[in-house]
Design a binder for these strands. Structure first.
Lengths: 336, 336
DNA sequence: TTGAAAGCGCTAACAG
DNA sequence: CTGTTAGCGCTTTCAA
C-alpha cells in the first residue's frame, strides 16, 4: 500500500489535519511547516488517495460516459471532446460502451452510479422512453444526452437539430435536380436520431411536393450485405440519390454500389450524415450533413459540470449546435 | 446522499455486516434474512458505494487507459477492445488522452494513480525512455503498453511487430516492381513505432539491394500542407511508391497527391499502416499493413488483469500479435 | 496556525 | 448464521 496522509504527518511531525490543509488550502499553513510537509511528501512519494477524499466529500469529480460504440468515429470524436474539456475542468472520465444494446445501457449506468460519478453523459437508443434515464432521474444524478433530442424538455441534451439537418441535406439533393430520393438507415429501433432524420427526409420531400420512398433499414456496418441493393439493378426502379443516416453507412453503400457495377455519383448520388473528417479526404468527397462531434462532447461536458456544480436553482439549458451541409463529389446534378 | 449499507441494515433490522455479507457472499446468509435485506435494498433503492469498498479493499477493479488521441481510429478501436474485455471481467475503465504531448502522459498517469486504478494500459511516445513509465515502475503499478514495443523486456506490451510488419509492407511494394520507394511519416519524436517502421522500411530496401530514400516527416493529419509534396511535381525526382507510417497519413497523402494532379495508383502507389476498417470500403482500397487494433485492446486488458490478479511470481508475458498485409487498389504494378 | 476527533461506506476478523 | 468492532484515507468541525 502506498503511503497515506498519516505516514506523511508522522514523518513531518505534524497532524494529519495539517497535511490535509496543505493539500487543500496551502495558504492556511505556516511556511516552515509547509516546507517540512512537502519534504515528507517528496521523501515518501505520497499521493492523495481519491477514494478516501471522495468518500469523505460525497463527490468524485468524475463523470461517466456511455456511448453506443467507438467503431463509429462520431462517438470517438465526441469522447475526445469530453475528455479534453474534462481535463480542463479537472474532472476525470469513466468510459463505457453499449454496442447498441439497451440492456447494456442500464448496466453501464448502474456501474457508473456505483462508482459515484457526479454525473453522466450518454447517447441512448431512445431518449424519450428509456428506463436508464428514468433511473438517472429518480436518483437525481445530473446527466446530459448527446446526439439524442429527447421530447421531455426536462432532459438536458446537446445535439444538432437532427430533423432540420436531414431536411437540409435532402433539400440539397433536391436542389441538384433529384426527385427519386431514398433513405438508407440503420435500425430505427437502435437510434431515435435515425427516426428524426427520417422525418427530416419526409419534410424535405413534402416541402417540394415529391413522393417519399420507403426507407431501407439495414444492420449497421453492413459491408457484404448487398442484398438490399439488388433492387437497384433495375434503372427504372432505383432512386437517383441515396440519403444515408450516417457516414459509415454511406461508405458501405458506395462500396456495395460499386460491387454492383454502379458508379457514384454518375449512376447514383450518395449523401451522408455526420460529416466525419475522413469523408473530406476521400475521392469523391462524401457530401454530408456535418455535426460538430468534438464540440458536442465539449459542450456536453461543460453543461454537465454546470449542472453538477451550479446552485440547484439555475439549471443549464439544452443546446442545439449548428450543422452545416458539406457538398462533395459523391453527389451530382441529376439530368434525366 | 444515497442510502448506505447502514440504512439498509436499520431498515431490515440486521447489522451492517450481514448486509455486506449478502452483497458479497450471499450463500452465507439465511434465506429469510436475505429476503428482508433484499426488500430493504429495493425499498431504499440502495446501491453499494464503490468508494467505500475500494478504500477498504485497497483495490478498485478499475484500470486506467492513456492513448495519444481518439482522432486516430486505431486508438478508438483499441479502447473499444479494452472496454469490452473490461466489462467481461467486471472491471471499469478510466480514460485519458494526451494529444501526443509527453507532459500530458505524466499528468494523466498521475491522475489515474490518485484514483488508485489497479493498473494502466497506455501508448506512449517513446516506451524505451519514458519518465511516465519510470513512475509506474517505481510505484509498482502493473501496466501494459499497446502499440509500443519497448526495449526493456521488463515492460509488458501488446503490439504487432512494427518493424517486420513495415518490412513486409515495403516488400509488397518491391514485389510489385517498385524500386523508388519513399516513406512518409509522422514526427519520429512523437512515436517510437514510426521509428521502428522506418527501420522495417530500411530492412526491406536493403534486403533487395535498393537505395533507401530520406523519410519525409510531417505533422500528423496534414491535410492542406501540400508543400512537402511539391517535390513530387518532377516525375524524375519522385518515388513511384509512398509508404506511410499510418493510414490517416496515407489518406491525407492521397488527397494531396490528387490536388497536385497525380493519380493513385497510376502515378504513384500508396501503402498505409494500421489497416483501419474504412480503408477497405474506399475506392481504391487502401493497401496497408493491418494490425488487429481491437484485439490489441482486448489482449492488453486481459494481460493487465492477469498481472494485477496473478500471484506476484508469474508475470504474464508480452505479446506480439500477427499482422497481415492487405493488398488494395492504392498500389499497382510498376512498369518503368 | 495547529491538533484531536469524528465519520464518510464498507468489509473482515473475531465472537458468539 | 449473525453482531460487534476496528479501520481503510481523508476532511472538517471544534478547541486550543
Amino acid at each position: 500500500m502506498p503511503p497515506s496522509i498519516k505516514q506523511v504527518a508522522l514523518h513531518a511531525g505534524v497532524s494529519t489535519a495539517t497535511v490535509s490543509r496543505l493539500l487543500n488550502k496551502p495558504e492556511s499553513v505556516s511556511v516552515d511547516t509547509a516546507g517540512k510537509i512537502n519534504k515528507a511528501i517528496a521523501d515518501l512519494g505520497f499521493r492523495p488517495n481519491f477514494n478516501g477524499r471522495n468518500l469523505r466529500a460525497g463527490r468524485s469529480r468524475t463523470v461517466g460516459v456511455v456511448v453506443p460504440t467507438l467503431s463509429n468515429t462520431v462517438f470517438a470524436q465526441c469522447l475526445q471532446g469530453i475528455e479534453l474539456a474534462a481535463r480542463a475542468l479537472d474532472y476525470s472520465v469513466m468510459f463505457t460502451a453499449t454496442e447498441y444494446r439497451q440492456e447494456d445501457e442500464a448496466a453501464a449506468v448502474d456501474l457508473l452510479l456505483n462508482h459515484r460519478v457526479d454525473g453522466v453523459i450518454l447517447t441512448v437508443a431512445d431518449a424519450s422512453a428509456s428506463n436508464t434515464l428514468d433511473v438517472l432521474d429518480s436518483e437525481q444524478i445530473p446527466y446530459v444526452l448527446t446526439y439524442n433530442q429527447p421530447q421531455q424538455a426536462s432532459r438536458l441534451s446537446v445535439s444538432v437539430d437532427n430533423r432540420v439537418a436531414a431536411r437540409d441535406a435532402v433539400a440539397h439533393l433536391i436542389a441538384l435536380g433529384h426527385t427519386r430520393i431514398q433513405m438508407l438507415t440503420g435500425y430505427f429501433s437502435a437510434s431515435d436520431r435515425a427516426i428524426q432524420r427520417y422525418h427530416g427526409y419526409l419534410d424535405a420531400m413534402r416541402d417540394h411536393a415529391l413522393t417519399p420512398m420507403a426507407p431501407i433499414e439495414v444492420p449497421r456496418h453492413t459491408g457484404l450485405a448487398i442484398d438490399y441493393l439488388q433492387a437497384f439493378a433495375d434503372p427504372q426502379q432505383r432512386p437517383s440519390a441515396l440519403f444515408c443516416s450516417n457516414d459509415l453507412l454511406a461508405f458501405a453503400a458506395m462500396h456495395d454500389l460499386r460491387a454492383l457495377g454502379l458508379r457514384v455519383p454518375q449512376d447514383m448520388s450518395v449523401m451522408g450524415f455526420d460529416g466525419i473528417p475522413l469523408g473530406e479526404l476521400m475521392s469523391p468527397v462524401l457530401a454530408s450533413a456535418v455535426q460538430p462531434s468534438e464540440q458536442i462532447g465539449d459542450v456536453a461536458l461543460r453543461t454537465l459540470v454546470a449542472a453538477i456544480e451550479g446552485p440547484a436553482g439555475d439549471r443549464p439549458a439544452s443546446r442545439i449546435l449548428a450543422h452545416t451541409i458539406r457538398d462533395g463529389g459523391s453527389v451530382q446534378f441529376f439530368d434525366s
